[in-house]
């Protein structure tokens, strides 16, 4: 073997966009190029716009009853018709967007960190810690999530906030499972050993080395979860355990509308379409994110 005494020549660094924005712009660009995830983006954008601008856009007060004009079919005055108390359904849908968004947001920011913490700690430490944390997770997973949330809401008392708490308590186990599985795949990697050799504490290793690796799949899973969260919230609303009347929550609207369903189809149809579109949008967006956050895509900075 011959030894060549050389020093490497280095290519000059390429000019780039501001670092923090590049991955985000890449991901959005990627999502935009595929029709299904672009649909998801558009619906999500609409939902946010409705939640923000609902009070401005709504033609009527969503709580204002008009007993002279109950159960009116869609018309120029009431585009989506009126309900059994003469309230404008379009206005109620617009106000309901903010409620739906609030449920999704609160559940996600509770569920993401809890699931991530439980999963990464269990995966990194292994052994007894892993056993204890995963058995607790199994207990939560062994109930269907709607049934478990029903039990929680029944115990806590029916209200929107309790529904959010109940959904959060039942939605974290799959995230924890996922984060643990991800952690197990690279906890023996050389860069984790290197971090240990540098004297990093377990908390530091989990936060700085493991969490960034788990984040993409957890974000994807959370996005896919949002559809389930919306459906569970609507289900709880439908059963009268979520948002209480007169709150314009979509599931509760369907619940009250079902009594008039045969004669007045618009009472259940429009909230139903809204729930369908939003949960479909989150599913498509989650699918798109799965492709966009693929490591090979991330490398195209």
């Amino acid at each position: 073997m011959t030894m060549i005494p050389t020093e490497t020549g280095h290519a000059p660094a390429r000019p780039r966009l501001p670092r923090a924005l590049v991955p985000l712009a890449n991901i959005l660009g990627f999502l935009w190029r595929s029709p299904t995830s672009a649909f998801g983006l558009i619906v999500l954008g609409l939902l946010i716009a409705m939640a923000l601008l609902g009070p401005v856009l709504a033609p009527y007060d969503p709580y204002a009853q008009d007993l002279q004009a109950t159960l009116q079919a869609p018309s120029a005055a009431h585009w989506f018709g009126t309900d059994e108390l003469g309230r404008d359904i379009l206005s109620r849908l617009l106000f309901g967007a903010a409620i739906t968004l609030r449920i999704i947001f609160l559940v996600t920011i509770v569920v993401g960190p809890i699931g991530m913490a439980v999963g990464t700690v269990a995966g990194y430490f292994g052994g007894r810690v892993d056993t204890v944390l995963m058995r607790v997770t199994d207990i939560f997973l062994s109930f269907p999530s709607l049934i478990l949330s029903l039990a929680f809401v029944a115990a806590l008392g029916p209200s929107l906030n309790n529904a959010i708490i109940a959904i959060s308590l039942t939605a974290w186990p799959p995230i924890a499972r996922l984060a643990r599985a991800e952690t197990l795949t690279f906890r023996k990697a050389d860069y984790i050993s290197a971090a240990r050799l540098q004297g990093a504490s377990p908390a530091r290793i989990i936060w700085k080395s493991i969490v960034p690796m788990c984040l993409p799949s957890v974000v994807i899973r959370l996005t896919l979860n949002m559809a389930t969260v919306i459906l569970t919230a609507a289900g709880l609303g439908f059963l009268g355990l979520g948002a209480q009347p007169p709150m314009p929550e979509w599931g509760a609207m369907i619940a009250t509308g079902r009594r008039y369903m045969i004669d007045s189809w618009w009472l259940v149809t429009f909230p139903g379409i809204a729930i369908l579109l939003v949960s479909l949008a989150f599913n498509l967006l989650g699918d798109g994110l799965r492709d966009a956050l693929d490591p090979k895509q991330m490398n195209r900075r």
């Binding site: 860069y191 050993s193 050799l197 540098q198 700085k208």
Partner: peptide, 19 residues
């Protein structure tokens, strides 16, 4: 940690891919 350090075999696995 300050008295001994290690260089690993595979430079593709010993650097954190997102750091």
């Amino acid at each position: 940690c300050r008295s001994l350090q290690m260089v690993f075999q595979d430079p593709y696995g010993s650097l954190h891919p997102r750091q």
